[in-house]
């Protein structure tokens, strides 16, 4: 057992998979010699050498094309796209190529690959280095979408993503890189599509993922202590596959649902979740379904503005208090 930051867990996860399988390679901009712009991949070049840990030029289409071609010919590649915003310059490879190739070829082609990326806001980087793109990816049939909120989940879900035979978008929340937690020694690998109940309560289910998980948990403690409201908090961990069974179970039990989403409101993942809940357990509901999201705007840079934009502990507390009456 070791206490790691989420940042340290990234290198721990990649190293675990590279030691296990010689077909795993890792490439991206500044990932090798520099150890990553977020210092998440320090030490990998030293351990695995330049044939397996590779610095690329700033060529996102070439990076994703390379891992796709490598995956269809026997490797299990991992690529880093430095900031998730940069997927906009290589989205064709994701949407038109990786996502569709198995289906179009009637199952002839497997693409066991992972695209890892720094996602989300909170670091004052402004509108082009802070986006949450989980809802873009979720809208494309054929891409798995994974987002851990703790160091141990990062390792276990990353291992599952590498071992999965389908393309996975692995979203590392930049705002969580400093979060610490225990990671067991030895092989750590979880299952994709399994949500975790982080807090059990009787009054409402709060469904969330990524950076919003610790915020929802903090809000739940405040609401419990100061207002006697007892919340269940569900960490989805992946959006595709989606653990609908877990969501429905706790919505039925509590009669209420709040989603807390970092992505902008329109067509955010919570819209899909609330649609499922409204359709499949409408008569178990005691109240309207409520989505807490970033507004329909690009993210501002200044701290005072960004903090009022992405759902905060205060906003979650305030919204739940108002809507629980």
């Amino acid at each position: 057992m070791a206490e790691l930051s989420l940042r340290e867990a990234v290198a721990r996860a990649i190293a675990q998979e590279m030691r296990r399988d010689p077909n795993v390679v890792f490439l991206g901009e500044d990932v090798a010699a520099a150890g990553g712009v977020f210092k998440t991949t320090t030490g990998l070049l030293e351990e695995f050498g330049p044939e397996r840990v590779i610095d690329t030029p700033i060529s996102e289409q070439a990076i994703l094309g390379t891992i796709m071609g490598a995956a269809m010919t026997g490797l299990r590649p991992i690529a880093e796209i430095m900031y998730s915003d940069f997927f906009a310059v290589c989205w064709d490879l994701v949407v038109n190529q990786m996502a569709k190739t198995r289906y179009m070829t009637n199952g002839q082609v497997s693409l066991p690959l992972v695209m890892k990326t720094g996602n989300g806001g909170g670091l004052r980087f402004g509108a082009q280095h802070s986006q949450s793109i989980e809802n873009w990816a979720m809208a494309v049939p054929g891409i798995k979408v994974v987002m851990p909120s703790t160091p141990v989940d990062l390792v276990g879900l990353f291992a599952a993503s590498v071992r999965d035979d389908d393309p996975v978008l692995f979203l590392e929340q930049k705002a969580l890189y400093t979060v610490k937690g225990d990671v067991p020694d030895g092989d750590v690998c979880f299952e994709l599509g399994k949500a975790v109940v982080r807090r059990m309560g009787a009054d409402a289910a709060v469904v969330t993922i990524g950076t919003m998980v610790p915020r929802a948990l903090e809000a739940a403690e405040i609401l419990a202590k100061e207002h006697g409201i007892d919340l269940t908090v569900i960490d989805l961990r992946s959006l595709i596959p989606l653990d609908t069974a877990c969501i429905l179970e706790h919505v039925v039990r509590t009669g209420r649902l709040f989603t807390v989403e970092e992505n902008p409101r329109v067509v955010g993942w919570g819209a899909e979740v609330t649609s499922i809940v409204a359709d499949e357990c409408f008569f178990d509901l005691d109240a309207p379904l409520v989505r807490i999201t970033t507004p329909y705007i690009p993210l501002p840079s200044a701290g005072e503005l960004e903090d009022k934009t992405i759902p905060s502990v205060e906003l979650i507390v305030e919204t739940i208090l108002k809507r629980m009456v």
Binding site: I63, G65, M68, G69
Partner: peptide, 10 residues
């Protein structure tokens, strides 16, 4: 699109 993919096979 296939030019980088072919590159990946190489």
């Amino acid at each position: 699109a296939h030019i980088p993919i072919a590159t990946g096979a190489a």
